[in-house]
Design a protein around this nucleic acid. Sequence first.
DNA 1: TTATCAACCGTCCATTCGGTCAGTTGGCAA
DNA 2: TTGCCAACTGACCGAATGGACGGTTGATAA
Lengths: 203, 203
Amino acid sequence: MTSASAARPTRRGRPGYDLESLLQVAVTLFNERGYDGTSMEDLSRKLGITKSAIYHHVPSKEELLRLAVDRALDGLFEIADEVRSMDGSAIDRLERLVRGSVAVLVDRLPFVTLLLRVRGNTKVERAALTRRREFDRMVTELVEQAEAEGDVRPDVDPAVTSRLLFGLVNSLIEWYRPRRGMDVGDLADAVCKIAFTGLRQSR
Amino acid sequence: MTSASAARPTRRGRPGYDLESLLQVAVTLFNERGYDGTSMEDLSRKLGITKSAIYHHVPSKEELLRLAVDRALDGLFEIADEVRSMDGSAIDRLERLVRGSVAVLVDRLPFVTLLLRVRGNTKVERAALTRRREFDRMVTELVEQAEAEGDVRPDVDPAVTSRLLFGLVNSLIEWYRPRRGMDVGDLADAVCKIAFTGLRQSR
DNA sequence: TTATCAACCGTCCATTCGGTCAGTTGGCAA
DNA sequence: TTGCCAACTGACCGAATGGACGGTTGATAA
């Protein structure tokens, strides 16, 4: 569990933001305006505190980004590790990876959103991109294996298939917002239906 | 045709960049570092001219963005208009829209890339988002119609289906780079296969 | 009642930002 | 060879940027 402060054990000191609650606001704002498009002044205004108060919680703007993208990547790699330790057919493991990724994406939506928009301007961003590529490589290998096992169509390059598959999954961040009537399971079902058997009605 | 300088009719004045060649470099750099992450100083260095020379060609940084996203949107709407004037089943028109969008995406890759990353911080960006939403609405309507005609699976909400479909298409900007061995037709084929009939091998 | 501790404020700073402006350079047409 | 014109330079500006720092506030534990 990465989530903090479930049943808080009475906080010491003056009440206000702690790192966790500050990070939540920061990441939300970063997603609205873009990381580079958000100044620390903007953030302080949103928080209702001064800019210097932010630096009590975090040493730099970039550290906020690091905390955010790591939280997303940690979630993704938890699923990846789980899938790696699974046995069964590659196609089953692939579906598990997709469903797990959708779950992480929904559970940590703002963090994953930020991750998927990182460009590689700084060390922090480049490190994030490297970890992302590691994840992508695993997806490709899984698709290749599933194709070798005869469960994935052979008429599309596995590298292309895997990219399209996770392009579809990752595109969720562009529009999905938690609401009643469509929980994570429903969403993962929809994604898997479209991705695995297509949008066309078979008849 | 939007492309300039095919058989240039002898340019007047001192040779160097014109608006078109400058825009190409600018958009490429914006895509590498992000629009907000790219300063006019950065751009001037890349161009090999001074910052003030840029302002000879363009009145503001934002104007560069406007030119770029408009070029992407114009391409997309050309396809949309073509599809609107088509007759035939909704599913056929949907496929035409997908193939046309893939073609525009490839033909104007850097421009579309920039468009799809716009956040809505300024008037220019908000205007772009509005036009994008107009395009998306058309996609959804087409999917709804195709479902009513029995050609699209009824067990997924059309709004979700259409978003996943174009999430998949748009994800091309994240990895597709023109290369020998895979032209636009091949790419569109792969996208349509995965999107319409899924990645699973039917057997 | 008091010590402790985290949260917070006001002020300041060097740098970078997008942008302006008056003047210069160099190729081409007449 | 001269005059035009687009491309370009260099010096500059006010505002915004990320960040530093010493001091203050307010709730809780002892």
